[in-house]
Amino acid sequence: MTGIHREIYGQGRPLVMLHGWAMHSGIWREFARQLARHRQVICLDLPGHGRSAGLEQFDLPAIGSALFDAIPVNRFSLLGWSLGATVALDMAARCPDRVQSLFLLSGNPKFVKNTDWPGVRPEVLDGFVAQLSDDTKLTLQRFLGLQVQGLPESRQLLQQLRLAVHECDAPARDALQGGLQILKNSDLRKSLVGMRCPITVMQGDKDTLIPAQTGQSIKALNSRVDLHVLANAGHVPFLSHARQLCDILAAAE
């Protein structure tokens, strides 16, 4: 593998899409093709994930630099899901001249919960960090299950996730550990406060990783945020609520 792997669909206004932790672009290929009916969709594998080469240091500055170099257009909209949302938010803050608009899907500028912010309990991420050292495969299976937990169609969605994920080998352990450290330690709330590009936040009200109140907390940081909470959606609404997301994205431009 060399460089950053990308898949490009359609023509028109460019939309760059970044997947989540332990995943790759294949996870939302069908969703990308739906979006490509109206625009050019550029899907990137994060460094060390899917078919992309790894980095010596898996941190936000290095990831952003590698991804910016791989994007074949100067100005674009940017959509990030989960860990990809954290990466996308950081990229938009670093290079506002290139990011025309920002879409955060099932994301959180501060992934970990504390007394004044909704998020994942720290011990949940710590558990994944510890388990990776013992059994990477089991850890990834547990993470997939968590993303659809509590949904009526959880079995079907879990099967879709598994089929897509297994298209590529699992990411290297250093990339997985690095991604968890980014989620555990990053706090990009200040970046959101001063961001001037249009921001759209999309989340599910049944998401076990992004609490339902996260959207309102984000909107309190930046009143210009366009918030959409999808009823009966979990952490993977591009699988369960693709049509609604397509409508939101079309209306935002």
Rank of each mutant, 00 (worst) to 15 (best):
C197A: 09
Q156S: 11
R189I: 05
P211C: 04
N185C: 14
N185E: 13
L157Q: 07
T214C: 07
D207H: 07
L161M: 11
E153G: 08
G179W: 04
E153S: 12
K184M: 06
Q213T: 10
R189F: 10
T214N: 03
C197I: 14
L176I: 07
Q141G: 03
Q141D: 04
C168W: 02
I199H: 06
L138T: 14
Q156M: 04
T136C: 02
V148K: 02
R155I: 12
G145A: 03
E153L: 01
P211L: 04
C168Q: 14
Q213R: 15
K137A: 14
T136F: 10
D174G: 08
R173C: 09
L188G: 06
L144F: 05
Q203I: 14
G215V: 01
L158D: 03
L180M: 07
Q131G: 05
P152E: 03
L146H: 00
L158A: 00
Q181C: 09
G145W: 00
Q213E: 14
R142G: 13
M195P: 07
L138I: 02
A130Q: 05
F143Q: 00
I182G: 09
Q156N: 06
E167L: 10
L192W: 02
G150H: 02
F143P: 02
Q159I: 05
S186E: 12
P152R: 09
